[in-house]
């Protein structure tokens, strides 16, 4: 995974969640260690994160895929598969 992608993902998350990029990086690490299943944002923030990621990376997620992108590891994996 490109670290450039990480930085851009963290920027989007930081904007929606009202946290610093460093705090988001910590969230990412804790989600990794929790097996990637712990969600740290609510459903409204989730949609705003998805829309923010679509704007940032100029991609469009399929509806069902977007609903499943509830953690940073899943977001990373999905973007990696779409952007290479």
């Amino acid at each position: 995974m490109h670290s450039d992608h990480d930085a851009r993902i963290f920027k989007v998350l930081a904007g929606v969640l009202g946290k610093s990029a460093a705090e988001v990086a910590q969230l990412a690490a804790s989600q990794e260690s929790a097996g990637g299943d712990a969600q740290f944002w609510d459903s409204l923030q989730h949609i705003n994160i998805i829309l923010g990621l679509e704007a940032e990376f100029r991609v469009q997620f399929e509806l069902m895929v977007a609903i499943d992108l509830k953690t940073i590891p899943r977001i990373r994996a999905q973007l990696a598969s779409m952007l290479g």
Binding site: S43, I47, I67
Partner: peptide
């Protein structure tokens, strides 16, 4: 809710 909100947004 999520599909609907996503679609409308």
């Amino acid at each position: 809710f999520l599909p609907l909100y996503f679609y409308l947004s």
